[in-house]
Simulated assay, not measured.
Amino acid sequence: MAFPNKYTHRKVAETSAKSCEVCFKPSTSVLITDDSKDWFYVCPGHLKDSGFCTPKIDHAAIEARKKKELDEEIERVKKEYEEKQKKKKEKDSKNDKEKEKEKEKEKDSKDGDDKDKEKDMDKGKTDTSSMGTSASPANNNSNEDEEEPRIFELKATFYQQRINKKRQAEIAKRNRERLRDPSYFPSVPKNLP
């Protein structure tokens, strides 16, 4: 009948909120055992209370999550780098075409020379400024607080209360079934005294 003292924290919809087992305020947080034999609503504030429960940290899951985040970051940086390289190649090819046009213009007129130089300088300034702004900002997920623990272990007194409550519910269910069974009660005597 006993169930393990290992509860997983889950959230339910606002419409499904029920009273907390401890303080009776409406709550959307639920603690449930792995085999779903026991579950109850609890306020998120009680989960941080060291007198109520202790979080169990799954180091393997944390390492796996960090590795996944790192892989995602590497992929994102690779894509950014490839995009920059493509843009750079496109600009180089455009610059080559522009240089050819400039050479033709130089041959046509010497006055256009000064204007082309100014254009080149302006383009150089815009190229460097666009390179600085094209990089996307880094993810701020690493700055955020660590994710709340999901697995908890109740303190001995609260765990014992949960076991007692389950036992009482089971006994009450058995008694209701017995009362519904007509053979449970003694029959009326048929013989005269």
Rank of each mutant, 00 (worst) to 15 (best):
residue 6 K to L: 14
residue 6 K to N: 10
residue 10 R to D: 11
residue 10 R to A: 12
residue 14 E to C: 04
residue 15 T to E: 09
residue 15 T to W: 03
residue 18 K to M: 03
residue 19 S to N: 15
residue 20 C to N: 03
residue 20 C to M: 03
residue 21 E to L: 09
residue 21 E to P: 00
residue 22 V to D: 05
residue 24 F to N: 12
residue 25 K to R: 15
residue 27 S to T: 11
residue 32 I to C: 04
residue 35 D to C: 05
residue 38 D to T: 11
residue 43 C to P: 01
residue 45 G to P: 04
residue 51 G to E: 13
residue 55 P to G: 00
residue 58 D to T: 01
residue 59 H to C: 04
residue 61 A to S: 14
residue 63 E to R: 15
residue 67 K to T: 14
residue 68 K to Y: 03
residue 70 L to I: 09
residue 74 I to A: 07
residue 76 R to L: 08
residue 79 K to P: 00
residue 81 Y to K: 09
residue 81 Y to S: 04
residue 85 Q to P: 00
residue 88 K to M: 13
residue 90 E to F: 00
residue 91 K to N: 14
residue 92 D to K: 14
residue 94 K to E: 08
residue 94 K to I: 02
residue 96 D to I: 00
residue 98 E to F: 08
residue 103 K to M: 06
residue 103 K to T: 02
residue 103 K to N: 08
residue 104 E to T: 05
residue 107 K to W: 04
residue 108 D to N: 11
residue 108 D to H: 11
residue 113 D to A: 14
residue 115 K to S: 06
residue 116 D to E: 13
residue 120 D to Y: 01
residue 121 M to G: 03
residue 124 G to E: 00
residue 126 T to S: 12
residue 128 T to K: 11
residue 129 S to F: 04
residue 133 T to C: 02
residue 135 A to W: 05
residue 135 A to Y: 07
residue 138 A to I: 05
residue 143 N to F: 10
residue 148 E to K: 15
residue 149 P to G: 06
residue 151 I to M: 05
residue 156 A to L: 11
residue 159 Y to G: 05
residue 159 Y to I: 07
residue 163 I to G: 04
residue 167 R to W: 12
residue 167 R to H: 14
residue 169 A to I: 09
residue 169 A to C: 07
residue 172 A to H: 07
residue 172 A to G: 06
residue 172 A to L: 09
residue 173 K to R: 15
residue 174 R to A: 13
residue 175 N to T: 12
residue 175 N to W: 08
residue 181 D to E: 06
residue 182 P to F: 01
residue 182 P to M: 02
residue 184 Y to R: 13
residue 185 F to R: 14
residue 188 V to A: 12
residue 192 L to D: 07
